[in-house]
Amino acid sequence: MTHPHDARSHEHASHLPPIGSAAGIDAGHARAHADVWLSDVTAGYGDRLALNGVNLAVEAGSLLAVVGPNGAGKSTLLKLIAGLLKPWSGRVEVLGHRPGVAARRVAYVPQAETVDWQFPVTVEDVVMMGRYPALGVLRRPGRDDHRAVTAALEKVSMAQHAGTQIGALSGGQRRRVFLARALASEPDLFLLDEPVTGVDITTQQELMDILEGEAKRGKTVIATTHDLPTAAERFQQVAAINRTVVAFGPASLILDPDVLARTYGGHVLVLGGQRAILDDAHHHDEAHGREAHFHEESRPAQPHRHRGPRPATRDESRDAGSTTDGEG
């Protein structure tokens, strides 16, 4: 099967709009080239607003990290794209259709906590579920399906655990299995909610290698994450979210102190050349922080690399994610 997006280049990433979402590019052009396209979308749960005025155009072959504090609307954004949540207003297009229409070409992986891990299914059973929608009613999994499941399990290094009940897996193994289920469905668009949260560094790197490989094959990958160093280092692009798209651009953008401040609020400290430390817990002078950074609406997008008093260690960079956890 040839992929419809194979011919598309990745060079668009270089002239993506500066801070302030996709509104900067010519709207028609963005829409035509986008796998995922949102225009002035407002959404929420019940009467609680979660996202407001979201504009976003994600091109085929993108490897996009969605970052932002808790309650910023990261999961909501994924659910909108997955068709699990209807927007209150605005338009969403996914693979050229309304959300849900091209559902079989979309693999959505929810956060780990949303399923019952004591459920009586094995690793292989779960990955096979990725094949169910395409099989249709009545048809049982055939040889191709078993082959796809085995291939997906090998890709995430879980083949030896195929017969294990999922409750016996570690947190990292669970994320691997869920990614394998997504891979087994051979989608054009991956929507992953916190795929590398709470896993060890080896697992994180392996999972990111796989996602990178899928993006290189022209698949579109959109993943939420709390882990800013991973977002900056391993993704091509980043969308910083806080109730709306605060910034959208090359992944290194997330290290820009103004972007950080506008995304996370409060006082943000950037240490070292590569890593960002968010230190909200120690700086409660939020109003001051906002004042310092919020007047610069029209600043250019060159990410600033601030030199801190000392380079951050790996451990500290892990903390960056967990510190932001405390919010919302």
């Binding site: 659910k79 997955a82 068709g83 699990l84 849900g100 559902a103 079989r104 979309v106 693999a107 959505y108 992986v109 929810p110 949303t114 399923v115 019952d116 459920f119 299914v121 779960v126 579920m129 990725g130 169910y132 929608p133 099989l135 009613v137 009545l138 049982r140 289920r181 469905s185 929507l191």
Partner: peptide, 20 residues
């Protein structure tokens, strides 16, 4: 008839719904 579909929807309703 709906064995697979009921199983997927029971185990992971969000992913099942997103996949159609």
């Amino acid at each position: 008839v709906l064995w697979k579909e009921l199983l997927y929807a029971t185990f992971d309703p969000l992913a099942a719904a997103a996949s159609g």
